Amino acid sequence: MEHRPRYNQPFTLSEAIVLDVSTLSEEITRLQYSIKRLRETQEALKGLIDEAVSPETADAEIVQAFKENQDVIGSQEERILILKLALADKGIRTGSHYDVDTDTSKVVKAPPHDPNAEEHDDPGSIVEDDSGGFHL
């Protein structure tokens, strides 16, 4: 099985294939969440761009951020494809559960952070960090 990525990826298909099913599945879930958040941001940026008198008068930094987010979304969607191919190589049939959901209305917003609340790690919660996922 071979896959030629359009975007630079942190791993190849052959590297993904050696990972266990739970790692592949967790990374797909993390990427799906990231894509949902990016699409929410894109909606906000698009609104700001549309408010401009003309495309030429839109804030250049906002337009640049919108374009960069499009590339990140494309890259992450491609990464999900690679991970799904790795699951398929292991005999795991990937159904709609692993598809990227474009409906941002289902995204649950995190409650505002209460600085006075006691900090703890909830094993049932997903904590996203800036590490960009796993690195091989």
Rank of each mutant, 00 (worst) to 15 (best):
Asp101Cys: 09
Leu85Ile: 06
Ile35Glu: 00
Thr102Phe: 13
Glu78Tyr: 14
Gln70Ile: 13
Val63Glu: 00
Glu56Asn: 11
Leu19Asp: 02
Glu77Ile: 12
Arg79Thr: 14
Glu78Trp: 14
Ala52His: 11
Glu51Asn: 15
Arg30Val: 03
Ser75Lys: 15
Glu2Ser: 10
Leu38Lys: 12
Asp101Arg: 04
Leu81Gln: 13
Ile28Asn: 00
Ala52Met: 12
Ser34Met: 09
Asp20Ala: 04
Asp103Gly: 07
Leu87Asp: 04
Lys84Ala: 07
His3Pro: 05
Lys46Ile: 02
Leu31Met: 06
Val100Phe: 09
Leu31Glu: 01
Leu81Cys: 08
Ala88Leu: 07
Asn69Gly: 08
Tyr98Glu: 11
Lys90Val: 01
Ser34Pro: 01
Glu78His: 13
Ala65Phe: 08
Leu45Phe: 02
Lys90Ile: 01
Ala60Phe: 11
Leu38Tyr: 08
Leu38Asn: 04
Ile92Pro: 04
Thr12Arg: 01
Glu78Met: 14
Ser96Ile: 15
Val100Glu: 00
Asp99Thr: 06
Arg30Thr: 05
Leu87Ala: 02
Leu81Thr: 14
Leu87Ser: 04
Asn8Glu: 15
Leu38Gly: 04
Asp59Phe: 12
Val18Trp: 00
Ser34Tyr: 06
Ala86Asp: 03
Gln42Leu: 07
Glu56Cys: 07
Leu38Ala: 09
Leu19Arg: 10
Gln42Trp: 00
Asp50Cys: 07
Asp50Ser: 11
Gln32Lys: 08
Leu38Gln: 07
Ile82Thr: 14
Asp101Trp: 00
Ile92Phe: 02
Asp101Gln: 09
Ala88Lys: 05
Arg79Val: 05
Asp99Leu: 11
Ile73Arg: 03
Glu61Leu: 13
His97Ala: 14
Leu87Glu: 02
Val100Arg: 01
Lys46Asp: 03
Thr12Met: 02
Arg39Trp: 06
Leu38Ile: 12
Ala44Pro: 00
His3Ser: 02
Asn8Ala: 15
Asp103Met: 09
Thr23Lys: 12
Glu61Lys: 13
Gly91His: 05
Arg79Cys: 09
Leu31Ser: 02
Gln9Asp: 08
Val63Ser: 11
Val100Cys: 08
Val100Ser: 05
Leu87His: 03
Glu27Thr: 13
Tyr98Gly: 05
Glu51Gly: 10
Leu45Ala: 02
Lys84Phe: 12
Gln70Trp: 08
Asp89Val: 02
Ile49Ala: 06
Val100Asn: 04
Asp50Ile: 08
Thr29Asn: 05
Tyr33Leu: 09
Ile28Glu: 00
Val18Arg: 01
Leu87Pro: 07
His97Tyr: 14
Gln42Asn: 03
Pro55His: 00
Ser96Cys: 08
Leu31Ala: 02
Ser25Arg: 14
Ala52Leu: 12
Gln64Thr: 09
